[in-house]
Write a protein that binds this DNA or RNA. Structure first.
Lengths: 200, 200
DNA sequence: GGGTGCATGTAATGGGTTACATGATTCT
DNA sequence: AGAATCATGTAACCCATTACATGCACCC
Protein backbone atom coordinates (compact mmCIF):
# COMPACT_ATOMS: atom_id res chain seq x y z
CA UNK A 1 0.00 0.00 0.00
CA UNK A 2 2.27 2.80 1.34
CA UNK A 3 1.85 4.63 -1.94
CA UNK A 4 2.89 8.25 -2.26
CA UNK A 5 1.95 9.36 1.27
CA UNK A 6 1.65 12.54 -0.73
CA UNK A 7 3.19 15.83 0.29
CA UNK A 8 -0.08 17.65 0.88
CA UNK A 9 0.51 17.76 4.60
CA UNK A 10 4.08 18.89 4.24
CA UNK A 11 3.28 21.92 2.09
CA UNK A 12 1.14 23.13 4.93
CA UNK A 13 3.86 22.52 7.49
CA UNK A 14 6.40 24.20 5.26
CA UNK A 15 4.37 27.34 4.79
CA UNK A 16 3.60 27.49 8.50
CA UNK A 17 7.34 27.82 9.17
CA UNK A 18 7.13 31.26 7.55
CA UNK A 19 4.33 32.37 9.85
CA UNK A 20 1.16 31.10 11.56
CA UNK A 21 -1.81 31.12 9.22
CA UNK A 22 -5.41 30.03 8.78
CA UNK A 23 -6.53 27.41 6.29
CA UNK A 24 -7.84 30.14 4.09
CA UNK A 25 -4.52 31.99 4.21
CA UNK A 26 -2.70 28.81 3.33
CA UNK A 27 -4.85 28.39 0.27
CA UNK A 28 -4.08 31.93 -0.85
CA UNK A 29 -0.40 31.60 -0.10
CA UNK A 30 -0.10 28.35 -2.00
CA UNK A 31 -1.61 29.89 -5.09
CA UNK A 32 0.56 32.98 -4.89
CA UNK A 33 3.87 31.37 -4.03
CA UNK A 34 4.24 27.73 -5.00
CA UNK A 35 1.18 27.78 -7.26
CA UNK A 36 3.09 27.17 -10.46
CA UNK A 37 4.51 23.88 -9.25
CA UNK A 38 2.15 22.83 -6.48
CA UNK A 39 -1.61 23.04 -5.94
CA UNK A 40 -3.92 22.30 -3.07
CA UNK A 41 -7.68 22.60 -2.93
CA UNK A 42 -9.55 23.64 0.19
CA UNK A 43 -11.20 20.25 0.22
CA UNK A 44 -7.73 18.99 0.97
CA UNK A 45 -6.37 21.78 3.15
CA UNK A 46 -9.04 21.91 5.86
CA UNK A 47 -9.25 18.18 6.62
CA UNK A 48 -5.45 17.90 6.54
CA UNK A 49 -5.03 20.72 9.03
CA UNK A 50 -7.36 18.90 11.40
CA UNK A 51 -5.37 15.72 11.03
CA UNK A 52 -2.12 17.59 11.60
CA UNK A 53 -3.56 19.17 14.72
CA UNK A 54 -4.76 15.79 15.98
CA UNK A 55 -1.25 14.43 15.46
CA UNK A 56 0.35 17.31 17.34
CA UNK A 57 2.21 18.67 14.32
CA UNK A 58 0.38 21.99 14.50
CA UNK A 59 -1.64 23.83 17.14
CA UNK A 60 -4.81 25.78 16.50
CA UNK A 61 -5.98 29.00 18.09
CA UNK A 62 -9.34 30.62 17.39
CA UNK A 63 -9.34 34.25 16.39
CA UNK A 64 -12.70 35.94 16.63
CA UNK A 65 -13.53 38.64 14.08
CA UNK A 66 -16.31 41.19 13.84
CA UNK A 67 -18.58 40.65 10.87
CA UNK A 68 -16.45 37.92 9.36
CA UNK A 69 -16.47 34.30 10.52
CA UNK A 70 -13.94 33.09 13.10
CA UNK A 71 -10.48 32.21 11.91
CA UNK A 72 -8.52 29.15 13.00
CA UNK A 73 -4.89 30.18 13.17
CA UNK A 74 -2.47 27.28 12.94
CA UNK A 75 1.13 27.27 14.17
CA UNK A 76 3.74 24.61 13.54
CA UNK A 77 5.07 22.72 16.58
CA UNK A 78 8.51 21.26 17.23
CA UNK A 79 7.11 17.87 16.28
CA UNK A 80 5.84 19.40 13.06
CA UNK A 81 9.27 20.81 12.26
CA UNK A 82 10.79 17.41 12.75
CA UNK A 83 8.29 15.81 10.43
CA UNK A 84 9.02 18.46 7.83
CA UNK A 85 12.77 17.92 8.14
CA UNK A 86 12.34 14.17 7.74
CA UNK A 87 10.23 14.62 4.65
CA UNK A 88 12.73 17.07 3.19
CA UNK A 89 15.52 14.53 3.52
CA UNK A 90 13.66 11.88 1.49
CA UNK A 91 14.64 11.97 -2.21
CA UNK A 92 11.74 13.32 -4.25
CA UNK A 93 9.81 10.71 -6.20
CA UNK A 94 10.18 10.86 -9.96
CA UNK A 95 7.19 12.63 -11.45
CA UNK A 96 4.48 10.75 -13.33
CA UNK A 97 3.91 13.19 -16.13
CA UNK A 98 0.60 13.80 -17.82
CA UNK A 99 0.70 16.34 -20.58
CA UNK A 100 -2.57 16.43 -22.44
CA UNK A 101 -1.37 18.89 -25.04
CA UNK A 102 1.49 16.63 -26.06
CA UNK A 103 -0.84 13.68 -26.20
CA UNK A 104 -3.20 15.51 -28.53
CA UNK A 105 -0.34 16.63 -30.68
CA UNK A 106 1.05 13.11 -30.79
CA UNK A 107 -2.23 11.94 -32.30
CA UNK A 108 -2.46 15.05 -34.47
CA UNK A 109 -2.62 12.93 -37.60
CA UNK A 110 -6.16 11.94 -36.63
CA UNK A 111 -7.35 15.53 -36.67
CA UNK A 112 -6.96 18.53 -38.95
CA UNK A 113 -3.80 20.63 -38.88
CA UNK A 114 -5.97 23.52 -37.84
CA UNK A 115 -6.80 21.78 -34.59
CA UNK A 116 -3.18 21.11 -33.69
CA UNK A 117 -2.17 24.64 -34.54
CA UNK A 118 -4.88 26.10 -32.37
CA UNK A 119 -3.77 23.99 -29.44
CA UNK A 120 -0.18 25.19 -29.76
CA UNK A 121 -1.31 28.76 -30.25
CA UNK A 122 -3.43 28.61 -27.13
CA UNK A 123 -0.54 27.13 -25.22
CA UNK A 124 1.65 30.07 -26.20
CA UNK A 125 -0.92 32.44 -24.79
CA UNK A 126 -1.48 30.68 -21.48
CA UNK A 127 2.18 29.98 -20.85
CA UNK A 128 3.19 33.51 -21.70
CA UNK A 129 0.70 34.70 -19.13
CA UNK A 130 2.17 32.37 -16.52
CA UNK A 131 5.67 33.56 -17.39
CA UNK A 132 4.61 37.13 -16.81
CA UNK A 133 3.04 36.16 -13.51
CA UNK A 134 6.22 34.41 -12.44
CA UNK A 135 8.27 37.46 -13.26
CA UNK A 136 5.85 39.36 -11.06
CA UNK A 137 6.48 36.91 -8.25
CA UNK A 138 10.20 37.38 -8.75
CA UNK A 139 9.86 41.10 -8.09
CA UNK A 140 7.69 40.37 -5.07
CA UNK A 141 10.36 38.11 -3.63
CA UNK A 142 13.00 40.74 -4.20
CA UNK A 143 10.96 43.21 -2.15
CA UNK A 144 10.78 40.80 0.80
CA UNK A 145 14.52 40.27 1.00
CA UNK A 146 14.39 40.20 4.80
CA UNK A 147 13.31 36.53 4.79
CA UNK A 148 16.25 34.15 5.00
CA UNK A 149 14.63 31.66 2.62
CA UNK A 150 14.65 34.06 -0.32
CA UNK A 151 17.48 32.26 -2.16
CA UNK A 152 15.43 29.06 -2.16
CA UNK A 153 12.34 30.82 -3.41
CA UNK A 154 14.38 32.32 -6.21
CA UNK A 155 15.56 28.92 -7.33
CA UNK A 156 11.99 27.73 -7.69
CA UNK A 157 11.06 30.83 -9.63
CA UNK A 158 14.06 30.44 -11.87
CA UNK A 159 12.99 26.90 -12.67
CA UNK A 160 9.62 28.14 -13.83
CA UNK A 161 11.26 30.79 -16.01
CA UNK A 162 13.65 28.47 -17.77
CA UNK A 163 11.04 25.80 -18.28
CA UNK A 164 8.45 28.18 -19.66
CA UNK A 165 10.98 29.80 -21.98
CA UNK A 166 11.85 26.35 -23.31
CA UNK A 167 8.17 25.59 -23.82
CA UNK A 168 7.66 28.79 -25.74
CA UNK A 169 10.67 28.16 -27.96
CA UNK A 170 9.30 24.72 -28.68
CA UNK A 171 5.86 26.09 -29.45
CA UNK A 172 7.24 28.57 -31.98
CA UNK A 173 9.30 25.91 -33.62
CA UNK A 174 6.32 23.58 -33.72
CA UNK A 175 4.07 26.17 -35.29
CA UNK A 176 6.60 26.55 -38.08
CA UNK A 177 6.63 22.81 -38.69
CA UNK A 178 2.83 22.66 -38.69
CA UNK A 179 2.71 25.49 -41.18
CA UNK A 180 5.04 23.66 -43.51
CA UNK A 181 2.88 20.56 -43.23
CA UNK A 182 -0.14 22.66 -44.08
CA UNK A 183 1.52 24.02 -47.21
CA UNK A 184 2.52 20.53 -48.32
CA UNK A 185 -1.01 19.32 -47.82
CA UNK A 186 -2.40 22.25 -49.74
CA UNK A 187 -0.12 21.79 -52.71
CA UNK A 188 -0.96 18.10 -52.79
CA UNK A 189 -4.62 19.04 -52.61
CA UNK A 190 -4.44 21.40 -55.58
CA UNK A 191 -2.26 18.95 -57.51
CA UNK A 192 -4.89 16.28 -57.05
CA UNK A 193 -7.66 18.67 -58.00
CA UNK A 194 -5.76 19.75 -61.07
CA UNK A 195 -5.28 16.16 -62.06
CA UNK A 196 -8.95 15.43 -61.47
CA UNK A 197 -10.09 18.47 -63.39
CA UNK A 198 -7.50 17.99 -66.11
CA UNK A 199 -4.94 20.54 -64.92
CA UNK A 200 -4.88 24.23 -65.79
CA UNK B 1 -19.47 16.76 -11.71
CA UNK B 2 -18.09 16.33 -15.23
CA UNK B 3 -14.59 16.70 -13.91
CA UNK B 4 -11.62 15.85 -16.10
CA UNK B 5 -13.25 12.89 -17.91
CA UNK B 6 -9.57 12.03 -18.20
CA UNK B 7 -7.88 11.01 -21.41
CA UNK B 8 -7.08 7.46 -20.35
CA UNK B 9 -9.54 6.03 -22.82
CA UNK B 10 -8.35 8.23 -25.64
CA UNK B 11 -4.71 7.20 -25.38
CA UNK B 12 -5.88 3.67 -26.02
CA UNK B 13 -7.99 4.71 -28.98
CA UNK B 14 -5.15 6.81 -30.34
CA UNK B 15 -2.63 4.01 -30.22
CA UNK B 16 -5.10 1.59 -31.78
CA UNK B 17 -5.22 3.81 -34.87
CA UNK B 18 -1.61 2.75 -35.51
CA UNK B 19 -2.48 -0.93 -35.36
CA UNK B 20 -4.69 -3.44 -33.50
CA UNK B 21 -3.15 -4.45 -30.21
CA UNK B 22 -3.76 -6.32 -26.96
CA UNK B 23 -3.98 -4.66 -23.57
CA UNK B 24 -0.52 -5.87 -22.80
CA UNK B 25 0.85 -4.44 -26.04
CA UNK B 26 -0.78 -1.13 -25.29
CA UNK B 27 0.96 -1.01 -21.94
CA UNK B 28 4.31 -1.64 -23.59
CA UNK B 29 3.68 0.81 -26.37
CA UNK B 30 2.64 3.55 -23.99
CA UNK B 31 5.84 3.19 -22.02
CA UNK B 32 8.01 3.15 -25.12
CA UNK B 33 6.35 5.92 -27.08
CA UNK B 34 4.39 8.45 -25.03
CA UNK B 35 5.90 7.31 -21.75
CA UNK B 36 7.72 10.55 -21.03
CA UNK B 37 4.56 12.61 -21.07
CA UNK B 38 1.82 10.08 -20.41
CA UNK B 39 1.49 6.99 -18.22
CA UNK B 40 -1.10 4.30 -17.82
CA UNK B 41 -1.10 1.34 -15.44
CA UNK B 42 -2.57 -2.03 -16.36
CA UNK B 43 -5.10 -1.59 -13.61
CA UNK B 44 -6.43 1.20 -15.78
CA UNK B 45 -5.85 -0.24 -19.25
CA UNK B 46 -7.72 -3.54 -18.93
CA UNK B 47 -10.95 -2.21 -17.41
CA UNK B 48 -10.98 0.71 -19.84
CA UNK B 49 -10.63 -1.59 -22.84
CA UNK B 50 -13.66 -3.52 -21.63
CA UNK B 51 -15.64 -0.35 -21.25
CA UNK B 52 -14.58 0.83 -24.69
CA UNK B 53 -15.65 -2.52 -26.15
CA UNK B 54 -18.99 -2.31 -24.36
CA UNK B 55 -19.51 1.14 -25.85
CA UNK B 56 -18.67 -0.04 -29.35
CA UNK B 57 -15.54 2.12 -29.67
CA UNK B 58 -13.33 -0.94 -30.13
CA UNK B 59 -13.89 -4.57 -31.05
CA UNK B 60 -12.13 -7.53 -29.46
CA UNK B 61 -10.94 -10.72 -31.08
CA UNK B 62 -9.39 -13.60 -29.16
CA UNK B 63 -6.07 -14.93 -30.38
CA UNK B 64 -5.14 -18.34 -29.01
CA UNK B 65 -1.46 -19.02 -28.36
CA UNK B 66 0.45 -22.18 -27.53
CA UNK B 67 1.98 -22.13 -24.10
CA UNK B 68 1.14 -18.48 -23.45
CA UNK B 69 -2.28 -17.25 -22.33
CA UNK B 70 -4.82 -16.07 -24.88
CA UNK B 71 -4.52 -12.56 -26.20
CA UNK B 72 -7.41 -10.17 -26.64
CA UNK B 73 -6.65 -8.13 -29.74
CA UNK B 74 -8.52 -4.84 -29.90
CA UNK B 75 -9.26 -2.84 -33.02
CA UNK B 76 -10.67 0.65 -33.19
CA UNK B 77 -14.09 1.08 -34.83
CA UNK B 78 -15.47 3.98 -36.83
CA UNK B 79 -17.32 5.09 -33.71
CA UNK B 80 -14.03 4.98 -31.84
CA UNK B 81 -12.35 7.15 -34.45
CA UNK B 82 -15.11 9.69 -34.11
CA UNK B 83 -14.74 9.78 -30.37
CA UNK B 84 -11.01 10.27 -30.75
CA UNK B 85 -11.50 13.09 -33.23
CA UNK B 86 -13.96 14.81 -30.91
CA UNK B 87 -11.57 14.57 -28.02
CA UNK B 88 -8.70 15.89 -30.13
CA UNK B 89 -10.68 18.99 -30.99
CA UNK B 90 -11.26 19.93 -27.33
CA UNK B 91 -8.64 22.38 -26.06
CA UNK B 92 -6.33 20.60 -23.61
CA UNK B 93 -6.94 21.43 -19.98
CA UNK B 94 -4.21 23.45 -18.27
CA UNK B 95 -2.00 21.15 -16.26
CA UNK B 96 -2.16 21.03 -12.49
CA UNK B 97 1.52 20.73 -11.76
CA UNK B 98 3.02 18.86 -8.84
CA UNK B 99 6.77 19.02 -8.67
CA UNK B 100 8.00 17.50 -5.45
CA UNK B 101 11.62 18.43 -6.07
CA UNK B 102 10.77 22.10 -6.39
CA UNK B 103 8.66 21.93 -3.28
CA UNK B 104 11.51 20.45 -1.28
CA UNK B 105 13.89 23.02 -2.64
CA UNK B 106 11.46 25.80 -1.84
CA UNK B 107 11.57 24.74 1.80
CA UNK B 108 15.30 24.11 1.63
CA UNK B 109 15.92 26.55 4.45
CA UNK B 110 14.43 24.01 6.84
CA UNK B 111 17.03 21.40 5.95
CA UNK B 112 20.80 21.31 5.45
CA UNK B 113 22.36 22.55 2.24
CA UNK B 114 23.68 19.05 1.75
CA UNK B 115 20.14 17.72 1.41
CA UNK B 116 19.13 20.23 -1.26
CA UNK B 117 22.32 19.65 -3.20
CA UNK B 118 21.79 15.92 -3.21
CA UNK B 119 18.27 16.33 -4.52
CA UNK B 120 19.46 18.49 -7.40
CA UNK B 121 22.37 16.17 -8.10
CA UNK B 122 20.06 13.19 -8.24
CA UNK B 123 17.75 15.07 -10.56
CA UNK B 124 20.61 15.70 -12.96
CA UNK B 125 21.29 12.01 -13.11
CA UNK B 126 17.72 10.86 -13.65
CA UNK B 127 16.88 13.56 -16.17
CA UNK B 128 20.07 12.97 -18.12
CA UNK B 129 19.09 9.33 -18.37
CA UNK B 130 15.65 10.28 -19.66
CA UNK B 131 17.21 12.65 -22.17
CA UNK B 132 19.37 9.85 -23.50
CA UNK B 133 16.34 7.59 -23.74
CA UNK B 134 14.44 10.23 -25.64
CA UNK B 135 17.28 10.63 -28.10
CA UNK B 136 17.07 6.87 -28.55
CA UNK B 137 13.37 7.17 -29.31
CA UNK B 138 14.16 9.87 -31.83
CA UNK B 139 16.39 7.51 -33.76
CA UNK B 140 13.74 4.81 -33.53
CA UNK B 141 11.17 7.15 -35.05
CA UNK B 142 13.55 8.06 -37.83
CA UNK B 143 13.85 4.41 -38.75
CA UNK B 144 10.07 4.00 -39.03
CA UNK B 145 9.65 6.86 -41.43
CA UNK B 146 6.97 4.96 -43.35
CA UNK B 147 4.29 5.97 -40.83
CA UNK B 148 2.49 9.16 -41.80
CA UNK B 149 2.30 10.37 -38.20
CA UNK B 150 6.05 10.64 -37.81
CA UNK B 151 6.11 14.46 -37.88
CA UNK B 152 3.73 14.55 -34.91
CA UNK B 153 5.76 12.05 -32.97
CA UNK B 154 8.85 14.14 -33.59
CA UNK B 155 7.20 17.21 -32.16
CA UNK B 156 6.47 15.39 -28.93
CA UNK B 157 10.04 14.13 -28.75
CA UNK B 158 11.39 17.58 -29.42
CA UNK B 159 9.35 18.93 -26.53
CA UNK B 160 10.95 16.45 -24.20
CA UNK B 161 14.39 17.37 -25.43
CA UNK B 162 14.00 21.10 -25.00
CA UNK B 163 12.34 20.76 -21.63
CA UNK B 164 14.94 18.40 -20.25
CA UNK B 165 17.77 20.56 -21.52
CA UNK B 166 16.22 23.52 -19.74
CA UNK B 167 15.91 21.48 -16.55
CA UNK B 168 19.55 20.47 -16.73
CA UNK B 169 20.71 24.03 -17.29
CA UNK B 170 18.65 25.08 -14.28
CA UNK B 171 20.08 22.28 -12.18
CA UNK B 172 23.67 23.28 -12.96
CA UNK B 173 22.92 26.89 -12.21
CA UNK B 174 21.21 25.92 -8.96
CA UNK B 175 24.12 23.78 -7.82
CA UNK B 176 26.38 26.78 -8.26
CA UNK B 177 24.10 28.93 -6.14
CA UNK B 178 23.89 26.26 -3.45
CA UNK B 179 27.65 25.98 -3.40
CA UNK B 180 28.00 29.70 -2.87
CA UNK B 181 25.49 29.53 -0.02
CA UNK B 182 27.52 26.71 1.50
CA UNK B 183 30.70 28.77 1.37
CA UNK B 184 28.99 31.73 2.96
CA UNK B 185 27.67 29.53 5.73
CA UNK B 186 31.11 28.03 6.26
CA UNK B 187 32.90 31.37 6.49
CA UNK B 188 30.30 32.62 8.93
CA UNK B 189 30.86 29.44 10.92
CA UNK B 190 34.62 29.87 11.12
CA UNK B 191 34.27 33.58 11.83
CA UNK B 192 32.09 32.79 14.80
CA UNK B 193 34.48 30.11 15.96
CA UNK B 194 37.42 32.47 15.64
CA UNK B 195 35.61 35.11 17.61
CA UNK B 196 34.74 32.58 20.29
CA UNK B 197 38.27 31.27 20.51
CA UNK B 198 39.79 34.72 20.39
CA UNK B 199 40.66 34.83 16.67
CA UNK B 200 44.10 34.18 15.25
C1' DG C 1 -30.21 43.72 -5.48
C1' DG C 2 -26.53 40.84 -6.88
C1' DG C 3 -21.90 39.55 -7.27
C1' DT C 4 -17.50 38.96 -4.95
C1' DG C 5 -14.49 38.06 -0.98
C1' DC C 6 -13.88 36.15 3.65
C1' DA C 7 -14.06 31.76 6.14
C1' DT C 8 -14.85 26.88 7.27
C1' DG C 9 -16.28 22.63 6.50
C1' DT C 10 -18.44 17.87 4.61
C1' DA C 11 -20.07 14.52 1.16
C1' DA C 12 -20.08 12.58 -3.20
C1' DT C 13 -17.64 11.10 -6.76
C1' DG C 14 -14.13 9.55 -9.56
C1' DG C 15 -9.52 8.71 -11.07
C1' DG C 16 -5.60 5.93 -10.58
C1' DT C 17 -1.96 3.01 -8.36
C1' DT C 18 -0.64 -1.12 -6.01
C1' DA C 19 -1.22 -5.54 -4.70
C1' DC C 20 -2.90 -9.95 -5.37
C1' DA C 21 -4.09 -14.07 -8.20
C1' DT C 22 -2.88 -17.42 -11.82
C1' DG C 23 0.08 -20.12 -14.75
C1' DA C 24 3.12 -21.54 -18.49
C1' DT C 25 7.60 -20.68 -20.73
C1' DT C 26 12.21 -19.21 -21.36
C1' DC C 27 16.47 -17.48 -19.93
C1' DT C 28 20.39 -17.48 -16.55
C1' DA D 1 16.31 -23.63 -9.18
C1' DG D 2 14.69 -19.19 -9.60
C1' DA D 3 13.84 -14.97 -11.95
C1' DA D 4 11.81 -12.63 -15.72
C1' DT D 5 8.44 -12.24 -19.50
C1' DC D 6 3.96 -13.02 -21.37
C1' DA D 7 -0.95 -12.17 -20.35
C1' DT D 8 -5.24 -10.87 -18.13
C1' DG D 9 -7.88 -9.47 -14.67
C1' DT D 10 -10.00 -7.80 -9.89
C1' DA D 11 -10.17 -5.65 -5.37
C1' DA D 12 -8.61 -2.49 -2.04
C1' DC D 13 -7.44 1.72 -1.14
C1' DC D 14 -6.28 6.45 -1.28
C1' DC D 15 -5.77 10.83 -3.11
C1' DA D 16 -8.02 14.79 -4.80
C1' DT D 17 -11.36 17.71 -6.94
C1' DT D 18 -15.98 19.45 -7.15
C1' DA D 19 -20.12 20.52 -5.34
C1' DC D 20 -22.86 21.83 -1.72
C1' DA D 21 -23.90 24.37 2.61
C1' DT D 22 -23.77 28.60 5.43
C1' DG D 23 -23.59 33.50 6.34
C1' DC D 24 -21.97 38.21 6.84
C1' DA D 25 -19.94 42.42 4.67
C1' DC D 26 -18.78 45.35 1.10
C1' DC D 27 -19.00 47.38 -3.37
C1' DC D 28 -21.27 48.74 -7.70
Amino acid sequence: MAKRSSSSNEVLLGLLTIQPMSGYDLGQTIRESVGHFWNESYGQIYPNLKKLAAGGFVTARTERQKGKPDRQIYSITQKGRERLANWLAVPPQPEIPRNELLLKLFFGGQASLQVSMEHVQRMIETESAILRKIEQIEKEIDKNRQYPDVPYWSMAVRFGQLELEAHLRWAQETLTVLNKLAKKQQSRGTARKERRHGGK
